[in-house]
Design a protein around this nucleic acid. Structure first.
Lengths: 361, 361
DNA sequence: CTGCCGCGTGATACCGGTATCAGATCGGTC
DNA sequence: GACCGATCTGATACCGGTATCACGCGGCAG
């Protein structure tokens, strides 16, 4: 008896059991080449009897294809990325691919480490929602590409990378939301949240600079906010945008500050779920309510937003579709398609509910 | 030039570049055996120069160890499982293991297929939140174990399987919640949701039978509900438990029905997030509000539950910890520890907020 | 000076598949 | 009956690592 490492029978053992050559068993089980019906039946029976399962590792070694996709996201525990991942793995599995997921927690070092893991495991392709901002932060992605691993970006485009990217119309979505607020009569509109800079930018130019040095989605949403303000000729006020670290806790403080301003905010636009829950807490703390005291619109719709009282007006991203499309694009490239190297933009939707009313008095 | 499949340099190429034997390069790069400082330096330099990365597949082939964990959950898009997964992958990565995730959508066939994928990919161990109910539904898990792959259950224990299981005190948690309701004076307490049987059970015995033939968590939570009722000598009323398919939509209908009863429900206990959002919608539809018209307690706390107005009293599961513990148990077994084959029960917490008040009049 | 030991190194047999290629078998044809 | 070709099968060289083992060389003891 050969030293059994507990890995189950090999193709050689099946061949021996069936009384055929190794190659014949391999052809039958691997589904390639020709094998006569009789031998095929014997091999199949032997495999069945022994409970044979092909070793995917060995197969990958010789074919050079692992049928595995690598996915790098900021946080697998975040409902947005969880939904994205669901879209990715649903379509990947439908095409016979499995998925390895790595979270980076927005940390570039972890993203680099994750990329290396995926290279080492010889995944066939990578989908990444990258935290990389500029030219000198994308070496790891270039390294993967240099090794012939196709990469598709999702949720966040990276300007320094000429790659397929599957994203939503963040700027349009933000503009539309702010337009709704403006149409309702608001002119003092808070923005939660902006770029994570230490010092609040005092000029619009500074703010824009900070935005382009931050996550693509954040920058786009900020630009959409400014677009809407510009169109309505509302002057930009740096006091109304929250900057710095992005925690729900800080949102409570920042929105509280905007609410305490002499010329206080009458509407708040939140670019993320935590921004909305934080704003809600700030409102309650200030003894204010929505939509009468302040109007609210947020990003990333959920079942909760619909059952709030009053229900919240939210921007719904096509999360599942975003992931599905990213997987499709990647799988098509793996299937031999030429990478389009373009932005695939999916439409988000503003779901009007009841958190927007005209400003007080 | 050897046919470059774009996989990057191999150990042989590094050895050639460094002018040493393959074995020497392997020892250096693999970190085993002895190599003199000079040669080691030359190998390292060559590897650096060529951008060498070890092929984890090849390594796994010869060592028989893949440093990969397989995780099977119901739905990766569900925040509960997403959080669980985060706990799992955080601790796995800290110990040098990566994770392959598969969703089953509560479908046993998919769970079996997922198990096979993991066997084929030769994962070192498996963590599964199984949909299997009885003896004849666990063959796939037995098959993995027979191949020497350790399996740890998470979230859901499976009676037919004598394995380590990392779970929470579902029955206690449910009992505590219902006790709080009873202490506030409620006697007509709705339960959302029960076993997915077609016909509403008319007797307590039937219900219990249905519960044990359903998901372990669901059964436990139902038992906790009955425990609390029993302790308070409140007779069980089959009209107050929702059975059948579990969708938010159906919850709206069922809770609506309980609210329309002559002797209507004055409190509702929800065992899942969708149950709570559905109940909230049913309340609004009926023109009722909480906590005055009906008291509410639900499972799975979230940021939203805290910002509802009034904020919801919820049971918080230690989601991250649940995943982390499951990974720990599995990794310990992989490290040579003897499987305890016991239930590791983590404590959940009832977070009292403001959705419970005495019943009307 | 010879023999032995030990150390460092390289050759090589694995792991379990795939893929190529040579050879055996068989039928058909002249 | 011999030859040819088509058909089917099995032997074997890969893939890129790990691990065993043999060998060469130097030092030291007898």
């Amino acid at each position: 008896m050969p030293a059994d490492r507990g890995q189950g029978p090999t193709i050689s053992e099946v061949a021996a059991e069936a009384g055929v050559g190794r190659a014949t068993a391999a052809r039958t089980l691997g589904g390639y080449g020709y094998v006569s019906p009789e031998l095929r039946a014997r091999v199949l029976a032997a495999a069945e009897k022994l409970g044979y399962r092909a070793n995917a590792l060995a197969r990958s070694m010789s074919t050079g294809v692992s049928h595995t996709l690598g996915v790098i996201v900021a946080d697998i525990g975040n409902p947005f990325f969880a939904g994205l991942l669901r879209g990715i793995s649903d379509t990947a599995r439908a095409r016979g691919f499995d998925v390895i997921v790595l979270s980076t927690y927005e940390n570039l070092q972890q993203e680099i480490a994750a990329t290396n893991v995926l290279i080492d495991k010889r995944v066939d392709g990578v989908i990444v929602s990258s935290a990389a901002l500029d030219r000198d932060q994308v070496a790891h992605i270039r390294a993967a590409m240099d090794r012939g691993i196709p990469v598709v970006l999702v949720d966040r485009a990276v300007a320094a990378l000429d790659l397929d990217a599957v994203v939503i119309d963040n700027r349009d979505a933000a503009r539309e939301a702010v337009e709704v607020l403006i149409a309702a009569g608001h002119r003092r509109i808070g923005f939660v949240w902006g770029p994570p800079v230490a010092q609040p930018p005092s000029t619009r130019r500074e703010l824009l600079a900070a935005a382009s040095a931050s996550l693509w989605t954040d920058g786009e949403r900020l630009r959409g906010y400014l677009d809407a303000l510009d169109d309505a000729h509302i002057p930009f006020d740096p006091e109304l945008v929250m900057v710095g670290p992005k925690t729900e806790e800080r949102v409570v403080g920042e929105v509280g500050r905007m609410l305490a301003l002499p010329d206080r905010v009458t509407a708040v636009f939140c670019t993320e779920t935590d921004g909305m829950t934080g704003s809600l807490r700030a409102l309650r703390k200030a003894g204010l309510s929505y939509p009468d005291d302040v109007a609210l619109i947020g990003f990333d719709d959920s079942a909760w937003a619909a059952v709030m009282d009053p229900p919240l007006t939210m921007i719904a991203q096509p999360v599942h579709q975003l992931g599905a499309k990213a997987a499709e694009v990647l799988l098509d490239i793996l299937g031999g398609a030429e990478p389009a190297r373009t932005m695939h933009t999916l439409r988000s939707h503003l779901i009007q509910r009841a958190s927007v009313a005209p400003p007080p008095e």
